[in-house]
Amino acid sequence: MSKEKYIDDIREIREMMDKSSRFISLSGWSGVSAGIFALLGAYIGYRNIYVDPSYSAYDRIVLSSENWWTLLLIAITTLLLSIIFGIYFTTRKARQNNQPIWGSTSKRLVVNLMIPLIAGGILCLMLLMKGYIGLVAPMTLLFYGLSLVNASKYTLSEMKSLGILEIVLGLVAIQFIGYGLIFWTVGFGLLHIIYGIIMHFRYEK
């Protein structure tokens, strides 16, 4: 047997291990729905904080303890709705692919997504409590991006590009603290919708 055959075999082994350990049933629609909920959430949130939008370049916001809770409630509702619809669309696609929704590949994906995400979530709650409100939007983007990059090894590789975009957006947002909500809306709303549509046309057509 020639050496080339075995080099080829090793390459085949690597490729199959890599390909088979990815969860490929993430639906593009879950990206689109998450994006729409983010846009709605951001809009409702905006109406709540900027009671009197003055159209000046830099709106100063003051959070009373009352709208602090409203804002948190909006954020949690948005997150829950995105997760519920994401699971719904993904279950549907997994059934089409005859892939288990809660198999080893999806478990690995979720675990690797959740570790940076939970760390970021806790950090953001701490920042909120200490009053560093301006840092929260950039931090959610940054940690969400890191989570996506981390999890992308276990699903379709486009997730990595989305993650990098979110990281860049988060870092830029730190430079423009007053515009957190705008960056947040672009990152969680627009990017999700664009990503979802791309994924839909690439893999679900």
Binding site: I13, M16, S21
Partner: peptide, 12 residues
Amino acid sequence: LGIMSSLVVNDS
């Protein structure tokens, strides 16, 4: 070889 490679990294 492909079957074995994928089964070694997946429970089933």
